[in-house]
Design a protein around this nucleic acid. Structure first.
Lengths: 239, 239
DNA sequence: TTTTTTCTCTAGCACCCGCTATAAAATCCA
DNA sequence: TGGATTTTATAGCGGGTGCTAGAGAAAAAA
């Protein structure tokens, strides 16, 4: 009687399946009454709601309202509130929260990677059309469900580890002095992002966050390689 | 019937009054049955509870348990949950959260002030005996009561303004270059503190936060005056 | 002692929470 | 058409929320 809702929770809208397990001619439309709402559109609404108010403060009644569906439909399509939130975190990460990983992977220099990351954070955290700040940083604070709070905490600490790994690669590549404290530099960059997210929630503008980011980057050691890839940036307002 | 609980909520424990308004010999002990608990001790317990779990996630049942009193006693002594929280924020600020203002007021140089502030933040945010991180930063996030969330937001933005004011004074005193962006530098320092608080909540150690703080201070411009007052500090791990 | 004042305890209010039983509606297959 | 299957809307469950009425208990005042 506990996990009687294991129905695979198929993801696409009903008439859009590609091919069924049986080799019939019909495009394998599901058997019963089709779903009357767009699952992905409803999920996107849930992303915005959780992003805005966090996990606990967003009630199921709030969710059914913004998603435009009834509670039984929500539970049939997404499981309980917690698994909906986990799916929301995945969608958020894919659609909004991956700018950091992309910068780390795509930029050829450590400095360029973090410079781009901070500037894109200033853009995303103050962009119109969605809540300000970062869902991963804020949506599960002060949470009475410890597992939910812990899941985002794990993600945040994984981010710091990824920062440290990239800094270490930069040291190995000779972009940073051999004595550089990769751990501290990773925590430093992460602190800047966390502070930017908080200040975005508190009303800071894109320009204010961009100035903050530039100032934070002025700590970064400059070596020859930076001149090649990052020639056009300003060096901050101090000094 | 709305505000029938305007009883002045006297603060001291019952038998400790100093002198009454009437010039009688007796030490002006209050009339009825004396309170059976120490109001300040109970308030300190409430500080720790709100600090740990935040405003919403701390229920009145939680409060009555850790404070060791019944709900009617709590409401008689502190008003409703929201006014108790406001009093808690005041106690927190006085007892724990004033290290920043003290550093700004007492240190002779801007650089010394922020250096001390960040180092003391690393200590406080990871100290044993109380929750990690900063109550003002975390206790009212994702709050369904907008006034509570707003009250701490105002405090945070006032802190940024105080930072900016101190930086401006440093510029005027010639400690910082005339072209320094005081607003951005204030937001930068505040972001470091917010990031340190978040990472303390996520499990960072005092040493990790101290290394983060030292790295953050390596951005700070050095001028002649710094040598006088802050001669013994390390200059960070990078470069 | 008696009265007055105040606090404490028990119990419970109205409301909101996450979640679901039930039955009607909408589709497919035979 | 007639099941079979799945989703939908209505309604409501048990439990937790902030908060309080009412009665009794402990002190000072008369």
């Amino acid at each position: 009687m506990e996990n009687s809702r294991e129905k695979v929770l198929r993801s696409g809208p009903a008439p859009a399946a590609d091919e069924g397990p049986t080799a019939g001619r019909t495009p394998a439309r599901p058997r019963g009454r089709p779903r009357s709402f767009d699952r992905e559109a409803a999920l996107e609404k849930a992303v915005l709601a959780f992003w805005e108010r966090g996990y606990e403060a967003t009630s199921v009644a709030d969710l059914t309202q913004v998603m435009g569906i009834g509670a039984p439909s929500l539970y049939a399509a997404f499981g309980d509130k917690r698994s909906l939130f986990e799916e929301v975190v995945g969608v958020y990460t894919d659609r909004y929260g991956s700018f950091g990983a992309r910068a780390l992977a795509e930029e050829p220099t450590v400095r360029g990677a973090f410079q781009r990351m901070l500037r894109e954070a200033a853009d995303l955290y103050t962009a119109p059309g969605h809540p300000h700040g970062c869902l991963v940083i804020h949506a599960a604070t002060n949470c009475t469900t410890p597992e939910v709070e812990e899941s985002l905490r794990v993600r945040r600490n994984e981010d710091i580890a990824a920062f440290e790994s990239r800094v270490g690669a930069g040291i190995a590549a000779g972009e940073l002095p051999a004595g550089t404290d990769a751990r501290a530099l990773a925590r430093y960059a992460r602190a800047i992002i966390q502070g930017m997210s908080q200040q975005a929630r508190d009303g800071a503008s894109r320009e204010e966050l961009a100035a903050l980011a530039d100032m934070a980057m002025s700590i970064w050691p400059r070596v020859r390689a930076d001149r090649v890839y990052a020639a056009g940036e300003s060096s901050g307002d101090v000094r």
